[in-house]
Design a protein around this nucleic acid. Structure first.
Lengths: 355, 355
DNA sequence: CTGATCAGCCGAACCGGTTAAGTAACGACG
DNA sequence: CGTCGTTACTTAACCGGTTCGGCTGATCAG
């Protein structure tokens, strides 16, 4: 098949100039027509669109970005080691949700994995200077997060993923960790447990802090005895913390993520204790992991994919001029499985168990 | 602090025009100086660089891309459901490795999550037409992969992640699955196992196919009795396949990923069988999961992060004009843990076990 | 002293879009 | 009929870089 000149080779190089030539109008008119803006008649618009479709025209992102000062790209920085990202299935699901909304708008995602918060800040500065992204999604919100003032100063549109208490008035999307924590503790309390251990994530993380507060409040309200151990979310520290927590002879342990819960389960079973007969376990971040262990784990499920999608939608709202708002996405749902049970009587009396 | 005009507001808007003005040369000369190209004297170059540094100039990506026809972006399409991405820690690690190399070159990653291969092909076509990416990394290589002819036709530089046997002459990076499979089977054979089950991934995946071949060859060579069940890599199908596989009374099971191995472990334990006393388990894709179960799982470890990094480096090579080559990245290493054991005598005699 | 060579720099076109400003045609209206 | 306001376009500037042809002055061989 012989190709006409201008339709050359492997990759199409159709520009609006060519469309203008073929449809007999100016380049500007073509732009108006293609962008669905007033200024052209319905007939002309239809003709231009037909020609564009025939030529299989695709807008050149760079050109559009250069003139319109929009990049049609959102940014997401993950300040974690690649190893953590592997261990935490959370992120990939979140990214998947983000993508699903972005693709509806033909937007792209710029994903950057960096080592720490400083590099994350540097990335925002760079992106802002380069006009690389139209906005950013900020995850792993901290207490007194240094990213908030930087983003404000840069004027970079952003949606924070985390509690309004941490967002300092910026737009945010969050799940109700407090309600979820209450549900978890009411669950174990209703089973009759009185001594509870909590294996938490790093205290610098805002969400962990929120849960710390909620845990403390619920413990007081329900009249429980409790202890909290902070970790780096890893399986290793989860196992170690479980070991230590057992000293206080808890009959229920609440974990901040699934990985630590599974690690804790292994530790407890290795000590010859039985679940749920001796200890009840509850995990945050439900995942397939919680369903494949034996026994299966009671967990707080929340839809991470939907969470990412929701945050992305809100970022589009922000770009459209929406006022900063806090959006409650959902409350993690307690899914009760085999790791939940009633404490035995000798436990409630505080007897020494084998270990 | 009062700002000079031209240094306005929150975001810097320094262009090479401004640099040209301040350093007293033309715009073109500035471009040559900043890009380290001949055409300017050392003195001028130094002056320009100094001014650029003072003004904190950052190149505008869109402008550069528009004129230089480079996007300084690599593309990665994942044709998986968000849910799978959550369950498979593999990808996030791979992406992390890719990122680490990209950032050294100030390149960006365009990540797209799509539902199926057709959408993936559409994405490549779109990217090629838009000049959105300079090259792509292709994962989840299939047998007779339809993406290969499309990428060839589009002239889109690519590095395939998968075996040369599947790459049809395109540049690729791979791990030696055959050697790894041999290592796994020699391990179980040397322990005395004679009846082996393999719980594999989807047969359409090239890597699964390669492993199928290697498994079959090794089984014949070692004189073993074996069966293979194909799954979709999910925990649910891994559990179901394990259940079925037990009918053939294997004394060792080799899984294609960690998630299914953990799921299988739970199934086996729920049936009252003991590991490794009754059955030896080996998992592919070592991960923290394999270390937190009880017992811990023997697994084939490979460095997914490094794998992503290596593939990315090779893509830079391709852009630099390197000829298509196959690069062996590494051979997965067998890490022996508690799930490996010798079969008991009554098993080797083929006796009926409890179940 | 002259003409050729060349490093060093200038000016301007160009990449492919968007958009403000300008213009021609046309209908409505006093 | 002249004026005004719309509609439907056209023209051209612009975004911020890259790149190429051409100009200048210095160097150098002849």
């Amino acid at each position: 098949m012989v190709r006409a000149p201008g339709e050359e080779g492997v990759v199409s190089r159709v520009t609006i100039k060519e469309i203008a030539r073929r449809s007999g109008v100016s380049q500007g008119a073509v732009s108006y027509a293609l962008n669905n803006r007033p200024g052209v008649s319905a007939a002309t618009r239809a003709r231009v669109l037909r020609v564009a479709a025939e030529l299989e025209w695709v807008p050149n992102r760079a050109a559009r970005q250069l003139s319109a000062a929009r990049s049609e790209t959102f940014g997401l920085v993950l300040a974690r080691t690649p190893q953590t990202l592997i261990e935490e299935p959370y992120f990939m699901g979140f990214v998947g949700g983000v993508e699903s909304v972005l693709s509806e708008h033909s937007y792209a995602l710029a994903l950057q994995v960096v080592a720490d918060l400083d590099e994350e800040l540097a990335t925002y500065r760079k992106w802002a200077a380069e006009r690389r992204v139209d906005g950013v999604l900020v995850v792993d919100l901290r207490v007194g997060d240094p990213r908030i003032p930087v983003l404000r100063k840069l004027g970079l549109p952003a949606v924070l993923v985390g509690d309004p208490a941490l967002a300092e008035g910026m737009p945010c999307v969050f799940t109700d960790s407090t309600a979820a924590m209450n549900a978890a503790l009411e669950h174990v309390a209703s089973l009759g447990h009185r001594v509870i251990a909590r294996i938490a994530g790093p205290p610098a993380f805002g969400d962990v802090w929120i849960r710390d507060q909620a845990f403390g409040a619920a413990v007081r309200r329900l009249g429980l005895t409790a202890s909290t151990q902070h970790t780096d979310y890893s399986a290793a520290q989860g196992a170690a913390a479980t070991h230590q927590a057992l000293a206080a002879r808890p009959t229920a342990i609440v974990y901040d993520n699934d990985l630590m819960a599974v690690a804790g389960l292994a530790v407890i079973q290795a000590l010859g204790l039985r679940i749920p007969d001796d200890i009840t376990l509850v995990a945050w971040d439900d995942s397939p992991l919680c369903r494949i262990t034996h026994p299966t784990l009671t967990a707080l499920s929340h839809n991470v994919v939907g969470y990412g999608a929701e945050a992305t939608r809100r970022l589009f709202d922000v770009l459209a001029g929406a006022h900063p708002q806090s959006h409650l996405y959902s409350t993690p749902l307690l899914t009760i499985r085999e790791s939940s049970g009633r404490p035995t009587d000798h436990q409630r009396a505080g007897d020494v168990r084998r270990g």
